[in-house]
Design a protein around this nucleic acid. Structure first.
Lengths: 198, 198
DNA sequence: ACTTTTGAATAAAGTACAATATTCTAATAT
DNA sequence: ATATTAGAATATTGTACTTTATTCAAAAGT
């Protein structure tokens, strides 16, 4: 069992009444008294624990999860104009954010795509960016989508105009793709977010 | 449920002998036999479990975590050119990705900032984007950083030139900021990623 | 008076056990 | 012959209990 490195917490100096007055025991040391014993909250988590059954394959992972404080919720600040004086960090604090929660609304229907090419540069989609794609969203006109065309994955903006379906790049050096045979195109999902490394 | 494909192997050398021959019990049904009993892997997780102690405040959260299959690792595809034929999804599969792992290398030193303004538009940083900021990285020349100037948070590219420190916007409509009094500027951290909604 | 030793008190942590759930088959009933 | 039922077998699951760790303070030593 791991030894707890936490420094001793000075407990309340409870007014202890010495037992020597009446029933002092001549033999042995120590003795009954209030305040003795290991203080609560000295465990590895600083709070009570309870045994819970977990699948063996996940125990390590869960222990990690618990050790790192659970959901990876980190503070979110905003650039909003502050009071005017040099303001503490709290003045900008908007709350806290978990990336998976924020970016993945439908975990079972979401996947990522790494971008190659620059055909969508004007939409803020660069080479090597990671796209968050949700296949549970309906691919409507105007949405940025991931489509498989002849077995090739592409990112484009979907256009439906006068009965025709087109895949529009957002880069002047590329031409729109007219989807003649709708059956040859499979839409994998709708892009919801772009993750870009600076 | 799934039946064990292995046929019941009699553990003891003697094959199961029907008890009726000699010491038939007139009363009672069923009886000893191999293969009886609840099959393994029928539990709520389909695998053995073990009791583990968890802090009470996290039990609900952990149960959620376990129920949703642990780390939110989702598939990552690439747009790389495939074999030429209409290819299955697997041909594009690069692996799987957990956003927190990918974006947050130093959880204790990372925070997020929501962008206002368009002064960094050429760096792909748009209004309302979320920036991933790591304060454990050293703010070197050329890095995009978050700085507090007179209590106001700003995103700019850090420049050190001939002894001067400057904060460079990436938008022609904005002018560089010369940091005259270095003490009035506090660098909060280095921007590692931009998260943009399409 | 100060330090060290020792046992009591009590929380933490791990595990064994009892209760429950599920499935199989022999015995019984139809 | 087929369907039903009761009991046996065995995995699952929750929790009680044992073991371990830590702290307090009286007693003993210096």
């Amino acid at each position: 069992m791991k030894k707890n490195p936490v420094s001793p917490i000075p407990l309340n100096p409870a007014p202890f009444k010495n037992a020597s007055s009446a029933d002092a025991k001549a033999s042995g040391r120590g003795g009954a008294r209030p305040g003795a014993g290991r203080p609560a909250g000295q465990g590895q988590y600083g709070e009570p624990t309870k045994p819970v059954r977990l699948p063996v394959s996940m125990i390590d992972e869960v222990m990690d999860y618990v050790a790192t404080g659970g959901r990876q919720s980190l503070p979110l600040f905003s650039c909003a104009v502050a009071a005017g004086f040099p303001s503490p960090a709290d003045d900008h604090l908007e709350g806290s954010l978990d990336l998976n929660d924020y970016l993945v609304k439908h975990p079972a229907a979401t996947f990522f795509v790494r971008v190659s090419g620059d055909s969508m540069i004007k939409a803020g989609i660069h080479e090597n960016d990671i796209l968050v794609v949700d296949r549970s969203l309906e691919p409507r006109h105007g949405k940025v989508i991931i489509a498989a065309l002849d077995g090739q994955l592409t990112v484009k903006r979907l256009h439906h105009k006068s009965g025709k379906t087109m895949l529009m790049p957002e880069n002047d050096r590329y031409a729109p793709i007219v989807v003649s045979d709708e059956a040859s195109m499979v839409i994998w999902g709708v892009v919801t977010n772009v993750i870009h490394s600076v």
